[in-house]
Amino acid sequence: MNSTRKIVLLNLFCILFFYSVDAQKIVGVKTNIPHWATVTPNIGIEVAFWNNMTFELSGGYNPFEFGDGQQWKHWIIWPEVRYWFWEPFNGHFLGLHGVFAEFNVGGLNLPFDRLAALKDRRYQGVVNGVGLSYGYTWIVGNSLLLEVTGGAGYGRLNYDVFSKGKEGFKINEGRKHYFGPTKGAVSVAYVF
């Protein structure tokens, strides 16, 4: 978890640095609606720092266990630098984002064949990655925005596999390279 603290502190430093760079400060606070559907409380902050550029740091944390060895515990952080085609917080943008996460999931019977092993096992590990994103933001009120974002890229997964349950024994370990979706959000934001 020591590396986790370093990542969080580095991202907070970046936000504070970018926030202090521009005299005309615009800050948005947002939440990703689909994350709430997975019982993951989340928040993001986005700061305009230069011409049509913004820096966003968003993340979610799910500490919940559901009993009978079922859990979907994780935290995730997405730092992202965005270039806006029109103006910050309005219209189309392209982004370069990072993905940093830890997970501890298992005992879940999900309808996806690719995740069928989660029913009888628990996976615990980390994900680090980078990707490109595209999004669009609509102004729906004086300070209220609706944003849709999607991104794809590369991720490196390092994980251990355990038998089902919190007290399960280690069965295996794995390392994977992942290419595919790395970000997706439908967010509601408030701009100051």
Rank of each mutant, 00 (worst) to 15 (best):
A37C: 10
A37S: 12
A37I: 11
V39M: 13
V39T: 10
T40F: 05
T40R: 08
N42A: 12
I43G: 15
I43L: 15
I45F: 13
I45T: 15
E46Q: 12
W50G: 08
N51I: 01
N51D: 15
N52F: 04
N52S: 07
M53V: 09
T54H: 09
F55H: 07
F55W: 14
E56T: 12
L57Q: 07
L57Y: 07
L57W: 13
S58V: 09
G59C: 08
G60P: 05
Y61S: 07
Y61R: 10
N62Y: 08
P63I: 03
F66C: 02
F66H: 10
F66I: 02
G67E: 02
G67F: 07
D68Y: 11
Q70S: 15
Q70C: 06
Q71K: 14
Q71H: 13
Q71G: 13
Q71L: 09
W72D: 11
W72P: 00
W72Q: 08
K73N: 08
K73C: 03
K73Y: 03
H74I: 04
H74Q: 13
W75F: 12
W75H: 08
I76V: 15
I76D: 10
I77D: 11
P79D: 13
P79M: 12
E80P: 12
E80Q: 14
E80I: 07
E80G: 09
V81R: 08
R82Y: 06
Y83M: 04
Y83Q: 06
F85M: 10
F85L: 12
E87C: 04
E87H: 06
P88H: 05
F89S: 02
F89D: 01
N90D: 14
N90Q: 13
G91K: 05
G91M: 06
H92A: 13
H92Y: 14
H92T: 10
F93M: 12
F93P: 02
G95M: 02
G95E: 06
G95Y: 02
L96A: 14
H97Q: 11
G98R: 09
V99F: 09
V99P: 06
V99S: 06
V99E: 11
A101K: 09
E102F: 11
E102L: 06
N104E: 10
V105N: 10
G107T: 01
L108W: 03
L108N: 03
N109A: 10
N109K: 08
L110N: 01
D113G: 05
R114L: 14
R114Y: 14
A116E: 11
A117W: 09
L118Y: 00
L118F: 00
K119H: 00
D120P: 03
R121E: 06
Q124P: 00
G125Q: 03
G125W: 01
V126N: 15
V127T: 08
N128K: 14
N128L: 11
N128C: 07
G129P: 01
V130A: 12
V130Q: 06
G131F: 03
S133F: 04
S133T: 06
Y134D: 00
Y134G: 01
G135D: 01
T137S: 02
T137M: 04
I139F: 00
I139W: 00
V140D: 01
G141F: 00
N142G: 14
N142E: 15
S143P: 00
S143G: 03
